[in-house]
Nucleic acid binder design. Structure first.
Lengths: 146, 146
DNA sequence: CTTGCCTCTATAGTCGCTGTAGACTGTAGG
DNA sequence: CCTACAGTCTACAGCGACTATAGAGGCAAG
């Protein structure tokens, strides 16, 4: 199976047809061959590239980084310091997001332990959101439930 | 200082002027008073509401949830089960994202330990992105660096 | 009075897609 | 061969949550 239509490629790579065309339009995929009637025809390397893109995106790499890495792949004789740098940057970013999310988790737990099913006007979640500095002291003992 | 212009509100609440007007346009803020020349004039409760919105957004609450909570605040005599439910949902979501990010961190670490500054065509980061199932075995011993 | 910042409205642009419309193509069954 | 029907084509609009721009008018200090 050397040539496949966009729909088959879509299934093979797990990327929607419209998204593939979109990637083409922003020059992430080269221009594919066309059948006599104008339908796009792809080879297996298109599956590779799409999986690469999708995987990188799943890992949270920004589009720009993906593009850079793809460009680098077209010059395979260079050293890969640049690729390494991109990955390290991404790792740092992920770490930052992890820290933020952890703080966030703690705060949400706190909010929830503070809400005891009263009325909205005394609700601790609401007041926590209104004023960041509330309801910390008495939360600690109840956190185990979460 | 009972009435302030949008710029002062912006500074007081840490939300950009344009964003405030945007929130007004999507009915998150009520219509403010206007000066004789048509400039928006806000009271302190606007600072409250904006901080609430910003804080909730920082915590990752979706806009829709923010809107719901604001609506609930206008009916302060109801019980706050709904608010609690929203917060719990958000907590579950945060947990999910945490798990994903942790997996992601692990994979990025793996990718980086595998990349030894060779050439792009042998770069393990690139090949990891191309094919998910590589380069796991020999990574473990070097992970400590990260 | 002028300078310079603030505010106004309305509109377009951002990112990373997704969805739509309306036409054409390719294929399988009868 | 004809008919269905699924797949494909282009071009463009829409999404969320803002951000930026243009061009006009407002306000306070020097």
């Amino acid at each position: 199976m050397t040539q496949m239509t966009i729909g088959r490629l879509s299934k093979a790579a797990g990327v929607k047809v419209t998204t593939i065309r979109y990637y083409e339009s922003i020059d992430l995929m080269g221009e594919p061959d066309r059948s006599s009637s104008g339908q796009r025809l792809y080879g297996d390397e298109a599956v590779q590239r799409l999986s690469f893109i999708r995987h990188a995106r799943d890992l949270g790499f920004p589009m720009e980084a993906v593009r850079e890495m793809i460009d680098l792949q077209t010059q395979p004789d260079q050293d890969c310091t640049a690729v390494d740098a991109i990955a390290r940057e991404q790792l740092a970013d992920v770490r930052k997001r992890l820290t933020q999310l952890e703080a966030l988790e703690a705060e949400l737990k706190r909010m929830i332990t503070c809400c005891e099913g009263g009325r909205v006007d005394t609700c601790r979640i609401i007041s926590t959101l209104n004023d960041h500095s509330e309801c910390i002291a008495d939360a600690h003992e109840r956190l185990s439930t979460f």
